[in-house]
Simulated assay, not measured.
Amino acid sequence: MVPNGNNDNNNTAKDYRDPPPAPLINAGELGKWSLWRAVIAEFTATLLFVYVTVATVIGHKRQTDGTVGCGGAGILGIAWAFGGMIFVLVYCTAGVSGGHINPAVTFGLLLARKVSLVRALLYMVGQCLGAMCGAGLVRAVHGAQYARHGGGANELAPGYSKGAGLAAEIIGTFVLVYTVFAATDPKRKARDSHVPVLAPLPIGFAVLIVHLATIPITGTGINPARSLGPAVVYNNKKAWDQQWIFWVGPFIGAAVAMVYHQYIIRGGAGKALASFRHNYISTA
């Protein structure tokens, strides 16, 4: 048990400890191998994620275009590929880099002061480069089929407006990043210690469920690196013209999820207001 500073009331003692906020600027990290090892882990994980998932999309489209005569993976199979890969890769890399594998997740954790600005920027660069390499591998493996079936690039489906696509990306990313915060919350782990929760599992399921809801609208981005990599390799005008949706939407969704979890669910707003009132009364 960790006391909260009130020795007269044991009922207010905290049975968990929140980690201190990460410094916004921590240039000293640049000289640590642990940071570069984490960046390499993010690069590799995002490469594998994009390769497996985009290859699943291309394979499905090839099998259902009438030339192969097979039903393909279907939307459910594609959603399982994305969710399953996130589960596997978060499980494998959580102890090294935190298992972000997504610039939107990194952005949300940066806003919550879980990572420094230096680490966040390097993670995002590694994730985007990994996504490009992963998409490049898919193109190398599938050859002409890659371009023929859209390169796995995220684009708005016919009949949907840019506003609808943006809303789908915001809501989908909110679900994902909120799940990340909830699954890794030290207070939740202490309170629900009798119910073992493997953090990668709910995160993977969040990705799966969001894909089921938004594949028909945008192909599901909720990960700017996943959208950028295929767009660079496929290099199609429509994919580039709509690329902003797959950056603005996820970043807004991540920011809203951070505010909701940290300031409403965790009571950060109430604590800040109580601190303000205490300081005001003390100086009055």
Rank of each mutant, 00 (worst) to 15 (best):
2 V>H: 15
4 N>A: 12
6 N>H: 12
7 N>Q: 12
13 A>N: 12
15 D>F: 13
18 D>T: 15
22 A>R: 03
35 L>A: 07
37 R>C: 05
38 A>T: 03
40 I>T: 12
47 L>F: 07
58 I>Q: 02
58 I>P: 00
59 G>M: 02
66 G>H: 03
66 G>I: 09
68 V>N: 00
74 G>C: 06
75 I>C: 00
76 L>C: 05
77 G>E: 02
80 W>V: 10
86 I>D: 04
87 F>D: 02
88 V>K: 03
97 S>M: 04
99 G>Y: 05
101 I>N: 01
107 F>H: 00
110 L>V: 04
116 S>G: 14
121 L>M: 14
122 L>M: 08
127 Q>Y: 00
129 L>Y: 04
133 C>S: 07
135 A>M: 05
137 L>N: 00
139 R>A: 07
140 A>G: 13
140 A>Q: 12
141 V>L: 13
143 G>W: 05
149 H>W: 12
170 I>K: 03
174 F>D: 04
176 L>G: 08
183 A>Q: 10
200 P>C: 10
201 L>D: 04
202 P>V: 12
205 F>Y: 09
206 A>I: 02
207 V>W: 08
219 G>T: 12
220 T>V: 14
225 A>H: 08
225 A>R: 09
227 S>D: 11
229 G>Y: 01
230 P>K: 08
235 N>D: 14
237 K>L: 14
237 K>A: 15
245 I>N: 05
248 V>Q: 00
251 F>M: 11
258 M>G: 13
260 Y>L: 15
262 Q>D: 07
266 R>N: 15
269 A>W: 14
270 G>D: 15
272 A>L: 15
272 A>D: 02
273 L>D: 02
275 S>M: 09
278 H>G: 08
279 N>E: 14
